[in-house]
Amino acid sequence: MRSAILQTASRYLLPILLLFSVFLLLRGHYYPGGGFVGGLVAAIAFVLHSFAHGTTNTMKIIGYKPMALIPVGLGIASLAMFLPVLIGYPVMTGLWFEEPIPVIGMMGSALFFDLGVYLVVIGVVLTILFTISLHTH
């Protein structure tokens, strides 16, 4: 399955797709997109890379086992959920910065929650696919 074209292409596709996935994540609140889709696209980017260069090499790029992303994501999402409690609001109250931030627009706890979803989705998909692919061959 290792063709030179795919290898070359995927080297450039990986950062582009990752960038696109972050873009999907950030604009999810206003336009189609969001944590789920963003995470899935990012996962596809890594899977494409692993097709071209082998799973082991892709794992090296990530540096960690993808499974580590799951607790991180869950942690961020729960933080976004329970942060309002610390300030005295009910769980999951939306908190927002007063002024819009350039490029991203309004930023609030919902975005952090979506970020958590994004990380969990990447972690889950890559854990599943990489474990299977590493132990099949």
Binding site: G28, H29, Y30, Y31, P32, G33, G34, G94, W96, M106, G108, A110, D114
Partner: peptide
Amino acid sequence: AKGKNVVN
């Protein structure tokens, strides 16, 4: 909720 994509 300050969002415009209702599904999200």
